[in-house]
Design a protein around this nucleic acid. Structure first.
Lengths: 209, 209
DNA sequence: TCTCCGATGTCAGAAGCTGACATGAGTCCT
DNA sequence: AGGACTCATGTCAGCTTCTGACATCGGAGA
C-alpha cells in the first residue's frame, strides 16, 4: 500500500470538475480543488502547470493519435484527406466521453481564459499535424495551411457535434464540414498564382435577405 | 493645460514595448511599465484589462475595418472572396506599421501567454467576420467556416509577410495563400455531402480529454 | 538494517489583479 | 466669485495564482 492515495492526478481533475460545476470556474480557487482531492495547492501545481490546465491535460493523447494517423496514412492520399482521416480518427475517443465533453464545453465557452487555452491547444494540434505532414513530403507552407484548414473544419464539426440532438458521431460532422469547406472554396480563380484582388467571381449566390 | 500629461494610454504602450525589448516580457512587471510612463500600476489596469492586453489594443480597429469591408462588398461577391477582400483591406494599415509588427511578433511567438491572447483575438475577428457575413444572408455554419478559413489564410499570409525580405505587401501574401488553399481543397470528393467514412487507420486509443 | 528515492507538505514571497475610497485640477452653473 | 460636480489618477488593503527552497517520511532496493 502506497504512502498516499493513488491517482492524485485524476482526483484533482474530478475535484476541479465538481467545483467548477458547483461554483463556476473563477469562484473556485486552486486551494479548494486541492483540498477536495485531499492534497495541497502546491501539489496541484506539480501536476498542472496552471489552473486552466486541469481541464486540458487530455490534449496530448489527442495530438499523438492524430500525428500517428497522419504518419500511417496511405502514401497516395491527398494532404487534405489525410488530415480529414486524422480528425475522424478522434471520433471514437470523443464518443466515449460525450457526457464529459458536454459538461466541459459550456465552461470553456463562458470563460475567456479557458477559450484562450483551448485555442492554443488547437494551434498546437495544427503544428503537430503540419509537422507530420511534412514528414510525408508535403511542402511547409502547404502543410501549415492544410493543418489550419483542418482545425477550422474540426472546430465547426465539434460545435455541431456538441449541439447535435440526433447524436451523430463526430466523424460524421467532420465529413459534413469538410464538404462544406470544399463547396466554399470551389468555383473561383485558383489558376493564376496572384489573381487580381477584386475579381468577384459569381458562384454561390448570397441568399436574399 | 491638463492636470496630467496627455496620452497616458500611448505612454503605457510605448513604455511596455521598450521594457519588453530591454528585459523581455516576463522579466518586466506592470509596476515598472507604469513607472516608466509616469503612472501607477493601478492606472495601468484601468487602461488594460491585463498585462498582455497592452500589446493587443489595436485589434479593435482591425476588426472594425474588416467588418465594414465585408458589409460594403458587392452583393454578388462569393463569401470567400468577401473575406479575402476584408483581409486585403488591412494591408495598408500593416504596411505602415511594419517596423512595429516586426518587433512585436517575436515577443508573441516566444511567450505562450501572448500567443494565447493573439489566438483569441483572431478568433474574435473570425466571429465578427462571420456575423457580418450573416448580415449579407450567408447561412450560419457556412459563415463560421468561411471566416475560420479566412483566418487560416490570414495566419499563413501574415507569417510570410513578416519574413518576406522582398517586402511584398500583405495583400499579396493573402492572395497567394488563398490560391494555395483553393488548390488544397480542390480535386477530391466534394460531390456527395456525406461521403461514407473513409477507412480511418485503426489506431484509436481512447484517450482522456 | 541502512540508504536513497520520490511524492507530498510547509513556508515565504513575488507578481497579477480588484474593490473601496481619497485627491484635486478643470469645468460648469448660478 | 463661489460652490458643486467630474473624472483621471493615486493610495491602500487584500486575494489569487504561481514559484523556489527545503522538510518529511514510507517504501524499494542494497
Amino acid at each position: 500500500m502506497g504512502r498516499w492515495e493513488p491517482n492524485a492526478l485524476e482526483r484533482l481533475q474530478d475535484a476541479a470538475m465538481e467545483l467548477f460545476q458547483e461554483r463556476g470556474y473563477d469562484r473556485t480557487t486552486v486551494e479548494e480543488i486541492a483540498a477536495r482531492a485531499g492534497l495541497t495547492e502546491r501539489t496541484f501545481f506539480r501536476y498542472f502547470s496552471d489552473k486552466r490546465e486541469v481541464l486540458f491535460s487530455g490534449s496530448k493523447g489527442l495530438e499523438a493519435l492524430m500525428v500517428s494517423t497522419i504518419a500511417d496514412a496511405p502514401k497516395a492520399m491527398a494532404p487534405i484527406d489525410v488530415v480529414a482521416a486524422a480528425l475522424e480518427a478522434t471520433s471514437p475517443g470523443f464518443e466515449e466521453r460525450r457526457a464529459h465533453a458536454c459538461k466541459r464545453q459550456p465552461l470553456i465557452v463562458a470563460h475567456a481564459e479557458l477559450r484562450e487555452r483551448e485555442l492554443i491547444k488547437l494551434a498546437s494540434l495544427a503544428s503537430a499535424m503540419a509537422e507530420s505532414l511534412r514528414g510525408r513530403g508535403v511542402e511547409k507552407s502547404v502543410a501549415n495551411l492544410v493543418a489550419e484548414a483542418g482545425i477550422a473544419v474540426f472546430k465547426s464539426a465539434f460545435e455541431r457535434w456538441i449541439e447535435d440532438t440526433k447524436k451523430h458521431e463526430l466523424a460524421h460532422h467532420v465529413r459534413v464540414a469538410l464538404a462544406e469547406l470544399r463547396l466554399i472554396t470551389a468555383g473561383a480563380s485558383a489558376a493564376s498564382s496572384t489573381p487580381p484582388p477584386t475579381k468577384a467571381p459569381r458562384r454561390s449566390r448570397p441568399t436574399s435577405r
